[in-house]
Write a protein that binds this DNA or RNA. Structure first.
Lengths: 222, 222
DNA sequence: GAGGCTAGTGACAGCCACTGACAATTGACA
DNA sequence: TGTCAATTGTCAGTGGCTGTCACTAGCCTC
């Protein structure tokens, strides 16, 4: 066993079986996203997706928990990358700053990782679709909530506090995530879906936090 | 027509038909919540709900868009009351303060309105169920997002700014809502589900905003 | 390198949420 | 009381999703 591992080289990694599975899975994701974005989520049946890849409907459900699950295959990648980006921030940074930098700097990595599975343009259209499809939007927000919880724990660990006793980790993550969601929504609504555009929106919204919390919006500084 | 209205008195308001409809609807909500909370959301079929009220399944779907819709019948009431509470805040209050007071003061009204349809204890158990049922949690968060948008528009109007040009309305509402969601989660998790408990949690989380945004959590003031 | 093992798959049957169409019923109102 | 319209039940059908069972094809052992 150990002999084979060291001898055959790096490409022996996954066996034939494993590679075939990966190919089927990727094909299903691509077919699903393509059909979703061109015919709409609700009007795409699982049968159609399965047929496009020439597998049985049953097989589709062996790869994905449901239609919805397939729709977020790419988002899962992005989330994992974001978590990694947060984990990689230097410990001296303030929590909010660490989150901010994680998004800003992590974006390029995320973009690349995603593009290796589906073309960027397809993913962009998925963003629009998610925003405009109630079912998908709901799922998206629940997923985000889960990521939030994970990030809160990360921040708590980083700062050496107990996430269940100290309110600050969850609070700062909740505030940050709320703003990111606004930025995301605006980003998806506009036509410029570049990484640069997301950078700018992120900064803009984060910078709007102070003014929004100000006592009164109507009084000018005397 | 006008004669009948003035003569028969206040109880003539809704006709027999209308009252019967209301009774059916309320019965469906109660049956649904009861079954949901005792057997679980996923394990409750629409047929069971309909049967409990002795109507056909088709009728259930004429009252509710879906199973999910029935689960949030009570939440709808609460949301409407909250919006009204915000609308009723004096215009001189700062936006964040207006939101805070709307929740704190609106809570009693909400509680009463809800209790007129289903017993409070049942509603409490629904809270737990929503938090622990992925499908319901997703729906809940999407609904909250819709309410947020409505409140943001309200705040913008109140402050006389354009909700699409000025970031502050949506930002302040997003921040506030994020905290309310944390409070709500904690409230549902604890055993004290009184209005007073919610008051305290709301205040606690809102007061944690400043400290959470502080530059560093580790350095003490010198 | 033959045969057993097991993961992956397809085919089929069935549950349940949800919808459309049409007929029967019942409150409203002249 | 008879007509109209709203409400409801019945029936049939679609589509997401799951359980089951038999079969095929990589993989492993002897």
């Amino acid at each position: 066993m150990s002999a084979a591992e060291t001898e055959v080289g790096p490409d022996s990694g996954p066996g034939l079986r494993e590679r075939k599975k990966q190919r089927t899975r990727d094909a299903l994701v691509r077919a699903a996203l393509t059909l979703f974005t061109s015919n709409g989520y609700e009007h795409t049946t699982v049968d159609e997706i399965a047929e496009a890849v020439e597998v049985s409907q049953r097989t589709f459900f062996r790869y994905f928990a449901g239609k919805e699950d397939a729709a977020f295959a790419v988002h899962r990648i992005a989330e994992a990358h974001f978590i990694q980006a947060v984990r990689g921030r230097p410990p001296h940074e303030a929590p909010l700053e660490a989150l901010r930098q994680a998004v800003l700097e992590g974006w390029h990595t995320i973009h690349e990782a995603v593009e290796s599975v589906v073309p960027a343009e397809l993913q962009m259209r998925m963003y629009h679709l998610i925003e405009s499809t109630p079912t998908l939007l709901a799922a998206h927000m629940r997923r985000s909530a889960e990521t939030e919880e994970a990030v809160a724990r990360l921040i708590a660990e980083r700062e050496g506090v107990d996430v269940d006793r100290d309110l600050r980790p969850r609070v700062v993550v909740a505030l940050f995530s709320g703003l990111m969601r606004l930025a995301e929504r605006r980003w998806g609504a506009g036509s410029d879906m570049s990484v640069a555009a997301m950078h700018e929106l992120t900064s803009t919204y984060l910078d709007a936090m102070g003014p929004a919390l100000a006592g009164s919006w109507r009084t000018e500084r005397p």
